[in-house]
């Protein structure tokens, strides 16, 4: 009952969609992590307008479905005169969505660093930004790497929603092939397996890095337990 021919005939086309999914997610992460860092620092800022804006942005994007964010971007950008192709709208939406989660991960990572670290940096004459860059953020990296990877996996999955604004990524391609062939089973299994494989690959690479990292370098206990807190506090699924 499986029609194997479909796998052979349409796999190249599906792969093309997969390739676009990859490109979109990579761009969204490249935009989203710096934006997340800015939002995290903004939320911690003592300057109220900045922390208010950062907090609102983070909470708004974390507490709404991605699909409505996508549609908002799709209609709002041209409304204010910014006409972009669906791909770019998709990247922007995914980056904005991701950055809200990245920001909270980074913020929790910064908070996990003992207070004395910032104090010793300030006491020796570093400015706020110099302390962040030289002392706090480097220590944050190893803490936030696992949850950031998790969030990346989430972005890969959420990118499927860009099919609703006609971005020709993996899911959209699947829908198109299904429309041509009327063989949903074969098509969606192919699509699902690709997502799944990508997910598992990244997850297993990450697990290996984590293992090696914790073997090579002793991390102090406080930081270790903080990693677990961040992991278990439902930042992403």
């Amino acid at each position: 009952m499986l029609e194997y021919q479909i796998f052979f005939d349409y796999f190249p086309m599906i792969l093309l969609g997969f390739w676009l999914t990859l490109k979109i997610v990579v761009c969204a992460i490249a935009l989203g992590i710096p934006l997340g860092l800015i939002l995290a620092l903004g939320r911690r800022s003592n300057f109220i307008p900045i922390s208010f804006f950062a907090t609102s942005f983070i909470e708004l994007f974390r507490n709404t479905p991605f699909i409505i964010q996508v549609f908002l971007f799709y209609y709002v950008l041209p409304f204010y005169g910014l006409r972009l192709s669906a791909e770019y709208v998709g990247i922007l939406a995914l980056a904005a969505f991701g950055s809200a989660y990245f920001a909270e991960i980074i913020r929790a990572g910064i908070d996990a660093i003992p207070k004395g670290q910032l104090e010793s940096a300030r006491a020796i004459g570093m400015t706020d930004w110099q302390s962040m860059k030289n002392i706090i953020l480097p220590q944050t990296v190893s803490i936030v790497l696992p949850p950031l990877t998790n969030q990346t996996l989430t972005l890969i999955k959420e990118s499927a929603i860009l099919s609703t604004i006609t971005v020709h990524e993996l899911t959209m391609t699947g829908l198109m092939v299904q429309g041509e062939t009327f063989r949903p089973f074969e098509v969606f299994i192919m699509v699902a397996l690709l997502y799944w494989a990508l997910n598992e690959t990244i997850a297993s690479i990450m697990r290996r890095i984590e293992k090696r990292y914790s073997r090579n370098r002793k991390q102090n206990k406080i930081v270790r337990s903080k990693i677990d807190i961040i992991k278990s506090s439902g930042f992403s699924r």
Partner: peptide, 9 residues
Amino acid sequence: FQQFNVWPH
């Protein structure tokens, strides 16, 4: 400082 606060990284 009492707690040293050396930079572990």
